[in-house]
Simulated assay, not measured.
Amino acid sequence: MQIETLFTYLTLTVIGLLPIMNPPAAATVLLGLSKGRDKNYIVSQAKAVGVYLFIALCITFFIGATVLDLFSISIPSLRLGGGIIIVAIGFNMLFPRKEADNTSPGQDSIALVPLTIPSLCGPGTMALIISLAAELAIHRDELHMPSVYSGVIAGFAIVALIAAFTLSMAYPLLRALGQNGINAFTRIMGFLLICMGVQFFTLGIEEIALEIYQML
């Protein structure tokens, strides 16, 4: 095991993924969707996100490209799908249904969708990880792969822990804002999510248009 190689890829993984994932943004999504919930619900969702995120990152790294190829899914299509999901969530937050306020705590887990996918492990994150896996496959003979894989997986674990901790900190903010503050905050975040979804959708359209143009 080459410790220097392991540490290098661990650091690169953490530094590369955190800005794209933006855990504080996912925490605001959790905050907006947790109206009427208690601390135990928020903390349990944060812990579940940590587990789901680590699994999702590992799956994307090892078989993500294969799965996309198997179903003929391109990265632009992934962006389009993620954008549609985010826009739908944003509309539900911007125009909440009255019956949603009566939902009892502990129901309707949001840890996998939308917090893990597509908020944290979205199209950008998947594209970066798949590109990394492809690059490592090209240079397989030049690298000590056990150290590289260990470093990347350890980086995934650290990123997942950071994300879970960040999301768990949403509860103090939830208490500070109060019910009226949460109502206003939910609508603001709903609007911002719609904008983010449209941005994902627009990027996907641009990439598809570019691919078509290059084929002509």
Rank of each mutant, 00 (worst) to 15 (best):
I85M: 11
I73D: 11
S77I: 06
G82P: 08
R97M: 12
K98M: 13
A88V: 09
G83P: 03
N92S: 14
D101Q: 11
S72F: 08
I85Q: 00
A88E: 02
N92E: 04
L94P: 01
D101P: 07
E99R: 13
G81V: 02
A88L: 14
S74V: 09
R79S: 12
A88I: 12
L94D: 00
I75Y: 12
R79V: 01
L80D: 00
T103V: 15
I73K: 03
D101G: 06
I85N: 00
D101T: 12
V87K: 05
S72W: 02
I75E: 01
N92M: 09
G83Y: 09
L78D: 05
R97P: 04
E99V: 13
P96R: 00
I85H: 01
T103A: 14
N102A: 12
F91R: 11
I84H: 07
N102M: 11
A88R: 08
I85S: 00
I86Y: 03
A88D: 04
T103R: 15
I85F: 07
G82S: 11
I89A: 03
I75A: 10
F91P: 01
G81S: 10
G82K: 11
D101V: 08
F91L: 15
G82I: 02
F95R: 10
R97I: 10
R79N: 09
G81L: 05
I73T: 09
I75F: 14
L78V: 05
R97F: 14
A100N: 14
P76K: 05
I89E: 00
T103Y: 06
P76M: 04
P76W: 02
A100W: 15
K98S: 14
A100F: 15
K98G: 07
K98F: 13
P96M: 08
A88H: 08
I85A: 04
L94I: 03
S77T: 10
I73H: 07
I73W: 12
F95Y: 14
G82R: 09
N102I: 03
I89G: 02
I73N: 08
N102F: 14
P76D: 07
S74G: 07
I86R: 02
R97C: 06
V87R: 04
I84K: 08
L94R: 13
L78E: 04
G81A: 13
P76L: 03
R79T: 01
P96T: 05
I73G: 05
A100I: 10
L94G: 04
V87P: 01
N92R: 15
R79E: 06
S72E: 06
S77F: 15
L94H: 09
A100S: 15
A88F: 13
N102T: 06
L78S: 05
G81I: 03
I89L: 06
E99S: 15
R97T: 09
G83D: 03
I75N: 05
I89N: 00
I84E: 01
D101S: 13
P96Q: 04
D101N: 13
I84F: 12
I73Y: 12
A88C: 13
R97W: 10
E99F: 09
E99G: 10
G90N: 04
